[in-house]
Design a protein around this nucleic acid. Sequence first.
DNA 1: CACCAGGCAAGCC
DNA 2: GGCTTGCATGGT
Length: 290
Amino acid sequence: MELAVQGNDIVLRGVTDFYLPHIFECGQCFRWNRQENGEYIGVAGGRVLRLGQRGAEVVLYDTTRQAYDEFWKQYLHLDYDYGTVKQTLSSDPVLSMAAESGYGIRILRQQPWECTVSFIISASNNIPRIKKIIDALCANFGEHIVYQGKEYYTFPSPERIASLNLEELAVIRAGFRDKYILDAARKTADGELDFTELEKAETQKARDMLMRVSGIGRKVADCILLFGCGRHEVFPVDVWIKRIMEYYYFENQQNIKNIAETANEKFGTLSGFAQQYLFYYARENKLTKE
DNA sequence: CACCAGGCAAGCC
DNA sequence: GGCTTGCATGGT
């Protein structure tokens, strides 16, 4: 892959295993929106970016080399070899098929705090409404930024949300999840939940730390670890994953724990990548119940 | 108008 | 420990 700075844009050539719709529409993130021309605009890490792609050429509009080196390269997981990931996983026939379907998926390196709130909101919810609630959260309590003449909002800090009461937070229409968001914000603001400490901890210990927050169970914790902490060995099991795993690997219904254990035996340290390919495949094919 | 959506906590055994 | 139920809200 080669990089060129052209005016205010950064152009990447020879990019493989990377396809914008796969990356932004596989359910890992909620703040990227497809434009009419197929480009995507998103807010992450307090910045805004417009992204375009034509085959192996990816353009990051109106940004700097510094922003790319410091943030977007890692965020977009461009410093990682997905060819090897897919090659290894493809020894399993189901994963071979799923990885072919979602060939351009990258697991974004999102910010742990944003991930925490986003996946608390995801509980018993649908993706369009999750996006709507997060948008309202940012528009009401985030910081205003302008990019290419349009207004955007950053994701609000733990301190900002911790300063609110339930009545004020009700404007985002999160329903019963509002008290969970507040608990996460308070525990993060006062250091009871410390993401720096969490980074250093073993995976199971890190999961336990997250699950001390009300509203964070096993599944939400695992999403935070995978999407916000770069723990690629974690395999979050939601209804879609449960459904596709039962369909291809079992003859009947299984409990969550058994599904996660089976995945770890099959996919090892690549379980998180496998999870994303399977999730995308299950939704793409509208895999139904039973 | 029922039913459901990237689950979770609380209450039961 | 495992199993059931209620939960806010909005979309179909």
